[in-house]
Design a binder for these strands. Sequence first.
RNA 1: GGCCUCAUAGUUCAAUGGAUAGAACGAAAGUUUCCUAAACUUUAAAUCUAGGUUCGAUUCCUAGUGGGGCUACCA
Length: 638
Amino acid sequence: MAVEWVKNNNFAVPNSFFFMQIENKIRETSTKALQTLFGVATTPEKITLNPTPKEFEGDFSIVVFAFVRDIRRAPEQIAQAIGEYLQENLPELARFNVQKGFLNLYLKDNFWSETLLQRPQKEDFFLSESQLRKIVLEYCGPNTNKPMHLGHLRTMMIGYAMANILAAVGNKVHKVNILNDRGIAICKSMLAWKKTAYGATPQSTGIKGDHFIGIYYVKFDTLLQAEYAKWQHTPTAIKIYHNYMEEGNDKTDKLDKTAFFKQYKNEYFNHHSALGAEARTMLQLWEAGDADTVALWKMMNDWVYEGFNETYAKMGIDFEKEYKESDYYERGKEMVREGLKEGFFYQKPDTSIWVDLNENNLGEKVLLRSDGTSMYVTQDMAVIEARYEDYHMNQSIYVVADEQNYHFQVLQKVLEKMGKPYAEGIFHLAYGMVNLPSGKMKSREGTTVDADDLVNEVIDKTRAAAELAEKSVGLSETESANLYEKLGVGAIKYYILHVNPKKTMLFNPEDSININGHSAVFIQYAHVRTRAILRKYNKPLPTSFDITQLENIERELIISISQFPAVVKEAAQQYDPSLIANYAYHLAKNFNRFFHELPILNNDDAAITDFRVYLSASVGDTLAQALHLLGIEAVDKM
RNA sequence: GGCCUCAUAGUUCAAUGGAUAGAACGAAAGUUUCCUAAACUUUAAAUCUAGGUUCGAUUCCUAGUGGGGCUACCA
């Protein structure tokens, strides 16, 4: 199912129309001013128009330095002249002031109050027709041999939010998952289970399916480690180390025995380990379709899927379709052979098939091993082909960590060589790695942060904070459990989404469960206040205002609100949900200031109360929509 | 070694080439007979180095230094 339009509140935010319209109007009138006053021909887009910094009076500022050279007058004189022209020709302008080369424009109060009254249409968020796409967006991509960790949280959050945002600006978006459900890693879990579980199941142990499998993945490594330690004392091992020491002349940079065997582990697994041989045999049996092996594989994967589905539900994410690697890797091999036949690839004497990407500075890459088995890139070729048949998309977005930049470049070039119509639309939405304060996560070394554990921890923290502050006392047990889950899940999403996806981010467990400051809970709280005000106001909102003057903070809020559609468009074009996250925080912060500085309901002037309630409600709706786009559900009470 | 990326307060993050570089956490000090104090106010605190382009550079270019990633017949 495609992403729905942002939830329709009973009352909606003003659209960008007025905002964009006034910006354009200022640009156009200024262009005329330059032409009329100085004979300078320019275009509206070339006028530099910025929001005015708050230390000066104004809503917008025009920067005139760019025209100084042509006009050959002092910047102040130019700014003054344009200001006077605008005063004559721009009815919305209340007054202006000049600071150096900056012309600060202050618009009329009633212009802004009228702007607030405008109702939005969802089309106001839409990009122009030519920019719209039919998109297949892949995110999450777990392996079925272990539970999901912190890194998966970032793709889940970014993927889901980006799908919402891209749909909000008018694209057709299909969310899909890729399940890496085959290969040597899964065989390791299967083998360890066979050897050590004595028939235990998630049901018999009460352990969530994906965590259950994870136990055996770790157990395999423990068994291997023990086997390896023993092996290091065998004559074979001693000879290998001896040969290494004898190689070359320079002995100074040689590794000591411990370090050597640490880096030799892969080699050991592939060529000396009995467990390794068993795992590979299992993989071969699986590929050959051995009934018992396939049955075991299916049973264990089903356990994992059950666990994953629980996590998806808790995170509030979903997929229109999940593609399993096991369904496509054979087709991938076929595509490579087809490509070879058509001369796009070449074969080495050992029968392995390669692609030459030197002209793209990507070197040469194996597509099919000499033993005929497929590569990572091969399966992605078949998967995108299947998606094209399913959706005929013109853009394929992959929300995958940036450590795979090379992989996606190769994928695209290979498909381009083959002349596939879906090659051009490949877009790797590469997000930066997530680091811990202790450094990089290593799943085999146990330095990962489990996704489920983390979310539960934040939910608990939210509950503890509420109890400490004696909040939510009127709620029933189920109501409050529901509330803390929404707040906790929202907090973790926000913590991840408020950073630009492109950047490597540090995940500090302490900070991530911090509920204060720049966090989703802060935004939720501002939203809750707007809802409380509406409840107390308890009558229909006004359809017009009778106010003569706006406070500064009120102007700021209206301007902020009117920028929202532009922010959403920008987030879609930049593939950057953090723009919306930071926008929402900024708006919530300004609202809290407004709430403290000015009486809303406790006001003798009913006209002012009407207006401020309307403004509060607008802020609340905007916050709710912003959170919704990020995949966070706004709460009404807390 | 080659290619790609990043560098901003003690820490984590912001800043279409524009004015005095914004926040949060942490530190210090305040605000509650008043619409929810999960809030608000105040103080101290930063653009890696050297050049260049520009009226103007955190932003663009070059070099250097220091992180990270990729460079597997792993996924």
